[in-house]
Amino acid sequence: MSPSTANSTLAGYDDAPPPPRAWGGSWRQPSVLPGFGITMGFTLFYLGLLVLLPLMALIFKAMEFSWEQIWAAATAPRALAAYRLSFGAAFIAAVINLFFGGLVSWVLVRYQFPFKRIVDGLVDLPFALPTAVAGIALATLYAPNGWIGKLLDPIGIKVAYTPLGVVVALVFIGLPFVVRTVQPVLQDLNKDVEEAAASLGASRWQTFRRVIAPSVMPAALTGFALAFARALGEYGSVIFIAGNLPMKSEIAPLLIIIKLEQYDYAGAATIGSTMLIVSFLLLLPINVLQRWSRLRSAEV
């Protein structure tokens, strides 16, 4: 390549990059379409009555108790063990789903194989199958005499009625979250960037690692966070397979129910609030992630 440059005339025409979109003005932009008042009013009324007011009740109820009571309930050994199991199992399950969810999305988007449409539809099964049904099915499958438990028992792996069982149930519950966030991004990935990478000498693996994976990563992380958040609060599919031994395989949502049944409202409200706060804290990075990925992958 010649070292000299074809310079000079380009300086004058640098067409401006697109300006960032800004929306200003009053609370509401005028519109010729009708119905804003009634639909907005109903939306806020319904949202407030059904969701916000009851959520507020939780906070109010928790405030009825003294700090000592709250602290004691929130940090009781049994509660701490339940948090540890809920968070730990949810995290491990989300990691497993990140991997297998990514794999399933990849296979569904990129390859052709028999019954692909059915497999694609099946991915949503955990959304559609009532959690109690999933729970008893998984417990039966992984029990020592179940179809899968029978295979694992001889090699010393116990799934049902152990923390491992909790992970299995949470993997089931979380899978569609990862697949359904990664799949559309993979689908929309332009073929030409992969061609560009190949024409620049990248191997297929390099193209995957350096071009495809980074493009999908924001969506995959969003899916991971969604699966994690869902797993944290999951109840129905877990309690049948978990065994529910205090300090061992008792998840936080179950502990809330146990407290309620013992009329320990302070305990229930405290553990509930703790989990709620953590869920909100999780929502935040999800939104930030989504905004960030949208910015980064703005139309090129």
Binding site: N190, E195, P214, S215, R296
Partner: peptide, 14 residues
């Protein structure tokens, strides 16, 4: 060793 310039540039956006 072909330099290919794509119609929509195909820049790596990340």
């Amino acid at each position: 060793r072909v330099g290919f310039v794509f119609q929509h540039y195909a820049l790596f956006r990340h």
